[in-house]
Amino acid sequence: MDVVVGRIAKAHGIRGELAVDVRTDSPEERFKIGAAVTTKLRDGSKRELTIAAAREHSGRLLVRFEEVLTRDVAETLRGALLVADTATLPPTSDPDEFYDHELAGLRAELADGTVVGKVVEVVHSPAGELLELDVEGREVLVPFVRAIVPTVDVAGGRVVLDPPEGLLDA
């Protein structure tokens, strides 16, 4: 199973450098020189690339790949997802830290056990993480903060919600 570790936002400069929105808590590991990443293009095709250089710039990571030498080639990768195989991810040592793929599919329930939906994905926004829930066929975004999501039980297949009034309403 693949997990997204970044998204290519745009080409940067004329030598094939790319601005990447990071989606991993360990960018120093995922984007170290010599590391291989797989790009998943919009058409569904995949391509493996090797990190030649990476540096922070204006809230993004600027990455140069050995196989991307010009801006024209870099432009073809705009919007591509950078993915890693979940089998290669190190285990998390913090009990309050989770990989996105561990949360997708979990049952969303209230403290009294009432099932309200399921987690579709984790949405990363500038303001913080949100859980996208499927609630009776509707998309509901829930801030992924302890006050609203006090319990994450991956082994039990559930997240427990304590939503403010109206958050889950249609």
Rank of each mutant, 00 (worst) to 15 (best):
T114N: 08
I148A: 05
L141R: 12
V142Y: 13
V123F: 05
T24N: 07
V149D: 07
E102P: 08
V73Y: 04
V22L: 15
T92Y: 00
F98Y: 15
V142E: 15
A19I: 06
V154R: 06
G44M: 05
G156E: 10
H101Y: 15
A35G: 00
V119R: 08
V154W: 09
G59V: 07
V83D: 08
L82K: 02
G59A: 06
G156P: 12
L49N: 02
P126F: 02
D112L: 10
G113R: 15
L89R: 05
V116A: 08
R64V: 14
P143R: 09
E97W: 12
A19H: 03
A108F: 13
R30Y: 03
V122Q: 02
L69C: 01
P90R: 10
G79H: 13
D96Q: 10
V119G: 04
T38C: 05
D85S: 15
E102F: 07
L77R: 09
V154C: 06
V83W: 06
A53M: 07
V149E: 09
A155D: 10
T38D: 05
E97L: 11
I148P: 15
D43H: 05
P126G: 08
Y99R: 12
E132A: 11
H57Q: 10
V154M: 06
R107I: 15
L41C: 02
R23K: 04
T38H: 01
A87C: 01
G59M: 05
A155L: 08
D72Q: 14
L133H: 08
E29K: 06
E67K: 04
R138F: 07
V135E: 13
P143A: 03
F144G: 05
L81C: 03
R55A: 14
E56M: 07
T151H: 11
V142M: 14
V68I: 15
T92Q: 11
R30T: 10
R60S: 07
D25C: 03
T70V: 03
V149L: 13
A155S: 10
L131D: 08
R158A: 09
D96F: 14
E29F: 12
A80N: 04
A52P: 02
D72R: 12
I148T: 11
R30S: 14
D25W: 09
T24C: 11
A127P: 00
V37K: 00
I33R: 02
V142D: 11
